[in-house]
Amino acid sequence: MRLRNKPGAKETILAHPHYILDDGSQWKGKWQERFEKAQPIHIEVGSGKGQFIVEMAKAHPEINYIGIELQTNAIIAILEKQMEEKLPNLQLLLVNGADLTDYFADGEVDLVYLNFSDPWPKTKHEKRRLTFHTFLKTYETIAKPKAELHFKTDNQGLFEYSLASVTWYGMTIKQVWLDLHTSDYEGNIMTEYEEKFSGRGERIYRLEAIFNGKDVE
């Protein structure tokens, strides 16, 4: 989805450093200090326009959330929501998800969300998929022992690839949903993409997997 350029987006970001950072390296190992109180930290890599991360923060005040997004025009939409909500348990980070070890210390994160990531369907682009093993290694590095990865997509090919990738990496598959919206899963919070795809009757896939400390190069 292409987003229109928002006039003054960069200026708005710079004007709200208490909610958003474009370089979080100075907070590496100290993210709890950015929040009102110390609580488990959940991050979403690729937050888009932020419906999921904002609604999760509203629904779970006992968890601290960090939305990570590379596109300025997307994260400004999240910032606008946060400027209205003023959620004490939500922070935003405008950085590349491939560089998370620059911004988080080892074992600082309790859970990682990947929602409707770009499927990069061509084989030559496999390394760009957010469930490729180098990304999994990055998540595991910043995550606590036995932390979880929660993944949702409408793309069957990416879902099958991701199942194979996390299995090969040595993660434990906790649970799989092949048609989330017809299941008995409770508490699902939809992203903008999820609303769009499910509204067209498309199937939504979901998995939860646990990191087991396997070292893969």
Rank of each mutant, 00 (worst) to 15 (best):
R4Q: 15
G8T: 07
A9V: 10
E11G: 12
I13S: 07
I13A: 08
P17I: 15
P17E: 12
L21P: 03
L21G: 08
D23S: 10
D23P: 08
S25Q: 13
W27V: 13
K28R: 09
K28A: 02
G29Q: 02
Q32I: 12
K37S: 01
Q39V: 01
I41P: 01
E44T: 02
V45K: 03
G46L: 00
Q51P: 03
F52I: 00
M56S: 07
M56V: 02
K58A: 10
H60R: 14
E62A: 05
I63C: 04
Y65P: 11
L70R: 07
T72Q: 15
T72C: 12
I76S: 11
L79C: 14
E80D: 13
E80T: 13
Q82S: 11
Q82G: 09
M83I: 10
M83N: 07
K86T: 11
P88E: 04
L90T: 14
L90E: 13
Q91E: 14
Q91G: 13
L92H: 02
V95K: 07
V95C: 07
N96S: 07
A98P: 02
A98C: 11
D99Y: 03
D99Q: 09
D102A: 04
F104S: 06
D106E: 15
G107A: 06
D110R: 04
V112G: 01
N115W: 01
N115G: 01
F116G: 01
H125T: 09
R128Y: 11
R128P: 10
L130C: 06
T131Q: 07
T134Q: 14
F135A: 05
L136K: 08
L136Q: 07
K137G: 09
K137W: 03
T138M: 01
Y139E: 01
T141W: 06
A143M: 04
K144Y: 13
K144R: 12
E148L: 10
E148N: 11
F151L: 10
Q156N: 02
L158M: 00
L158I: 00
E160I: 03
Y161I: 05
S162N: 06
L163K: 14
V166M: 13
Y169R: 05
G170A: 04
M171Y: 11
T172P: 04
T172S: 11
I173D: 06
I173W: 09
K174Q: 05
Q175Y: 15
V176M: 06
W177Q: 06
L178A: 08
L178D: 12
D179H: 08
D179I: 02
D179M: 02
G187P: 14
T191P: 00
Y193P: 00
E194S: 03
F197M: 06
F197S: 04
R200I: 11
G201T: 10
G201R: 09
G201Y: 10
Y205K: 09
R206K: 08
R206M: 05
L207Y: 12
E208W: 10
E208K: 09
F211T: 00
F211C: 00
N212W: 15
N212E: 15
K214Q: 02
D215L: 15
D215V: 14
V216M: 14
E217H: 06
